[in-house]
Design a protein around this nucleic acid. Structure first.
Lengths: 332, 332
DNA sequence: ACAGTGTGGGAGATCGATCTCCCACGGCTC
DNA sequence: GAGCCGTGGGAGATCGATCTCCCACACTGT
């Protein structure tokens, strides 16, 4: 029992393949309503499904968008991919997600794989601001590419990101408003634009001598390392801003093991507003990204004219979500 | 600048398309090494990439495997998808992951989308043992489908799962060996085969009257609900087995908020061995699935003869990972 | 030297849907 | 009533890679 083809549907409905195609693919062309009904009926009866390879070959489009994220082990990127998937599906498309394992080399491979005739366009959350540029630029020469959440030098394409500087100001204003002035930053992954921008904004606001703990990567484990260092200097610090939720979670659990009270002795904030934050007691204050808006904009750029994709960075406004890790009276 | 086709490569190398195809697609056929080098050189020079739609149309295969998981919000399924992705990539293929949002209806849609000419085969982690069957059976009639991690009634295909009964025995033996005898189960999602099997195994071992808390879904929030109920009955319980890590994490954090010491007063175990478990103090004892082996087997079934995919369940041996939530002396 | 054998290469058919013509037909104008 | 136009449908070309032949040539054994 071989799968029915358009030809079979056309024969069953007593029309030509062209007409059947016009009906089923929704080509903008008037077809006699009566014939249309017959075609649809026949398609349903035979259980016809359009062969996507054939359609893609003929039309040159696949209806699929790809996204490459640094690592799905970080729940923030899962959430991000999900936000994009919602938008893509709403538009009748499909999303393919790839994981770059935090390596620019693997990232380049994933981009290459997705781009060779499998997707119409690509969103990339670049692993590194410096090292990801060339691969993205090469990709952008072959198909529409838009950077998401982070940018990369020399990418040659547009980026849709969070306004990290504004986010940092929100956090610092919030903490200072609560009377916290000895604020330390736990920053990770300076190679990424988001990591670098968050550090730069902190330094700009607090002065070059401000306390910072720099870590290699956005992982819970790095957060625990930071926790040990902060605990050792607990007398000098009354608040810690973490550059990512995964860091904050590791940090808070380590601080608590060292009997440092949060927020009593040290207030802590995260960044990204993932579900992880609700796990601990206290839940952690964080920054929410307007992911739905960002995804909508990125997809519009992807599908719009190439002229709109010149190298640039578009920044979206963050939102502060206050929880008990900074303000014990914040409602749960 | 239009993309180079096989024809262009062949012309540049001074051979026919057939020969160029034999070289680049690796058809099992002898080609003069000298010609082969010329073809490869030309392909590289022109920046040729094979058009996957055309290849797929002609060969009828896409080199892509799909997997549908109940929800990527549960980190266990992210981990599971990653294990499958590793195996698929090692075999030179690509994996497409879809999220069923814990709904059999959306699951059926995702299966349908993936199956219409986009994947060679499909792995499904069915949302529900009862409700997922029909959609899976329909899919299995059109392409190779194998169930993963869970099974579904009337699916008409093979399933590769964990031996949940053995896992439950490992946990109970471990707890009883530590002198814990007033053990409660926190079970969720009885609609899924894994949820149901874990409950059944617990009841079989501890008797029908054994304490259980039943919850609708595998979420952290459900874990917190369970935590409140267990805390209210703290005198009757000295150990809690959770049917999933996300439950255990919610449970432990809630118990600690109620000043119940873990494991001092109540020992707690998870299920699935996700990274979440390292977040809390104490880290939580759990069950590790042999995901790499399971993925290897599932893919072998997918690519093997249809006769091997008659409805059946193959169970893999679990592994107990002891952490401080049951045995305070276990090393970190 | 010749039929037989084996090896490597090419011409053309093929996968299935869509797109580009072109044609038939009915209604309209003057 | 003849020419025009607009509408709807069909035949065939097309997308790009692979597969199925079949042919040319070199080498073998008698």
């Amino acid at each position: 029992m071989t799968a029915p083809r358009l030809l079979d549907v056309a024969a069953a409905a007593g029309v030509s393949r062209a007409t059947a195609s016009r009906v089923l693919a929704g080509t903008p062309r008037n077809v006699d309503p009566d014939l249309a009904r017959r075609v649809e009926e026949a398609a349903r009866r035979l259980g016809y499904r359009t062969n996507h390879s054939a359609r893609a070959l003929r039309t040159g489009t696949t209806g699929t968008v790809g996204v490459v994220v640094p690592s799905l082990a970080n729940p923030y990127f899962v959430q991000l991919a999900d936000a994009i998937a919602q938008q893509v599906r709403a538009a009748g498309g499909q999303l393919v997600v790839s994981d770059a394992a935090n390596s620019p080399a693997i990232e380049a491979e994933q981009i290459e794989t997705l781009l060779s005739g499998r997707v119409d366009g690509l969103l990339v959350v670049p692993v590194s601001a410096a090292a990801s540029g060339p691969a993205v630029r090469a990709a952008a020469g072959r198909a529409p590419v838009v950077l998401f959440d982070r940018w990369a030098h020399g990418s040659g394409t547009a980026a849709v990101t969070l306004d990290n500087a504004a986010a940092m100001r929100l956090l610092l204003d919030h903490l200072e408003g609560l009377g916290r002035h000895r604020i330390a930053l736990v920053a990770a992954d300076q190679a990424s634009s988001s990591g670098a921008e968050r550090l730069a904004a902190f330094t700009a606001a607090r002065g070059a001598g401000a306390a910072t703990v720099l870590l290699p990567s956005f992982t819970t484990d790095a957060g625990r390392t930071a926790g040990r260092r902060i605990a050792a200097r607990r007398a000098e610090v009354d608040a810690v801003v973490c550059g990512a939720d995964v860091l904050a979670v590791g940090l808070v659990s380590t601080l608590q093991r060292s009997a440092v009270s949060v927020p009593g002795e040290i207030a802590v904030t995260g960044f990204d507003d993932t579900e992880l934050l609700e796990l601990l007691d206290p839940p952690i204050t964080s920054i929410r990204h307007p992911l739905a808006d960002m995804a909508e904009r990125a997809l519009a750029l992807l599908q719009g004219p190439a002229a709109d994709r010149t190298e640039s960075v578009e920044r979206f406004a963050p939102q502060l979500v206050v929880r008990a890790s900074t303000d014990a009276d914040a409602h749960p």
